[in-house]
Amino acid sequence: MLQFLKLILFGFLYIVLSPVIVAVLALALAYGLIVFVLLFLKSIVLFFGGRTIFSDYPEDIAAKIILGQIRDSGSEAGTVK
């Protein structure tokens, strides 16, 4: 019963907040479209440079090297045993 009352309360809250929710969604959509256009232009420029926007960031490369080292040291420890 308490759960059902909570559900009704949430329903009321969502109805009251629906204009705000729609506004946030519209703003995020507009922002997302701007991001899309900018990244699309960037991807065209990178494409002619032989690169892609989906390549790893320096941080990703560094993290992968560290993970590789951990994995290697782990397997070495395994062979010693």
Binding site: K6, L7, I8, F10, L13
Partner: peptide, 11 residues
């Protein structure tokens, strides 16, 4: 019923 339905959709 409408409030419960909206609440369910929200969840």
């Amino acid at each position: 019923a409408v409030l419960a339905l909206v609440g369910l959709i929200g969840l």
